[in-house]
């Protein structure tokens, strides 16, 4: 047996405390989940909603807690605190960061193995494999070994394997990392198509611009959620003003490079002279969120009595 064998999946609650900042609780997701590895905290009090027909994206740099977040969602790790809403095991499709396919099986054999593991009947299996091969553009490569495919094709195959049993929840750990831009477009088309068929999709990425494609976003940094919501909500919630300026050196403490120019953030909304106001985009929102978190931590440090 493999642990969570409850036939209906449903709500699995760990620890005593319900999630802080838990969201609506509709669909799948995490409610105030904390994951610790021994003494190290991988994820702290993070909530995430993954709704049917929607794509939820977890954005963050290396070691931000993205994998911990998705592992908790699919049940690879049990949270030390908080609750996880997920369907039964046979209704989850998961692609680990390593793609997780068999290099010494052909494309078709990989898909067939997954389909059989999920107990699909032969006619349904063959029909679904045919459709997925079509949709991923892997028809021509169906007899090629998984290990002989290009990186982008491997990812597409991995996503197809995760979709072969028609899951309700599709979880993808950095599906587009290290993938060429064209394949990335293909992968997103595949993911969007799945969502359009009613699958709840959760994926992680290090590419901030990809988050703008999502219907909801959680920005992780050092295991904590800095901001969450739809991309529009996140953009609307950027406090103060953001501006752009050409300068040879860093114009203010709260500024960052953007192409040949600098972006400047003024929390009080008053930009320095010569800085032209711009509408903040998602990348700006992420930078502002990280600066706000740093400021909050710095003021917490300053407030200490010792």
């Amino acid at each position: 047996m493999t642990g969570d064998d409850s036939p209906d999946g449903g709500r699995s609650v760990a620890g005593g405390q319900s999630g802080v900042g838990g969201q609506s609780g509709v669909g799948f997701g995490l409610d105030g989940v904390t994951v610790s590895y021994g003494r190290r905290i991988g994820l702290y009090d993070v909530s995430l909603d993954v709704l049917a027909g929607r794509v939820s994206v977890v954005v963050g740099g290396d070691g931000a807690g993205k994998t911990s977040c998705l592992s908790a969602l699919v049940g690879l790790v049990t949270p030390t605190r908080g609750a996880v809403r997920r369907p039964a095991k046979h209704l989850i499709g998961y692609v680990p960061a390593t793609a997780g396919l068999y290099g010494d099986l052909t494309v078709e054999e990989n898909l067939r193995f997954t389909a059989e593991a999920f107990h699909l009947a032969v006619p349904e299996r063959e029909a679904r494999i045919g459709r997925l091969l079509d949709r991923t553009g892997l028809v021509g490569a169906r007899r090629r070994l998984g290990g002989h495919l290009s990186g982008g094709m491997q990812r597409k195959l991995a996503v197809a394997m995760a979709l072969v049993h028609a899951p309700q929840l599709l979880v993808l750990d950095e599906p587009t990392t290290g993938v060429d831009p064209l394949s990335r477009v293909d992968l997103w088309r595949l993911i969007s198509h799945a969502a359009s068929e009613g699958v709840a999709v959760a994926l992680s990425t290090t590419y901030v611009n990809e988050a703008a494609r999502a219907s909801s976003v959680v920005l992780l940094s050092a295991g904590r959620a800095l901001v969450g919501g739809s991309p529009e909500e996140i953009l609307a919630s950027v406090p103060g003003a953001v501006g752009s300026v050409a300068a040879s050196s860093r114009p203010t403490e709260r500024s960052w490079r953007r192409g040949a120019r600098w972006r400047v953030w003024a929390p009080d909304g008053v930009l320095p002279d010569g800085v032209e106001t711009v509408v903040a985009d998602f990348e700006d929102a992420v930078m502002v969120a990280e600066m706000m978190s740093e400021m909050a931590m710095a003021s917490a440090r300053d407030a200490r009595p010792w």
Binding site: Y37, G38, R40, K66, V77, T78
Partner: peptide, 24 residues
């Protein structure tokens, strides 16, 4: 092997270099 398959409490497995870390 059940330990590898079942969702246990998050573990710090002592992994050899090259193995995937658990946190992302």
């Amino acid at each position: 092997f059940r330990r590898d398959l079942a969702p246990g409490p998050a573990r710090t497995t002592r992994q050899s270099p090259g193995a995937e870390g658990a946190a992302g």
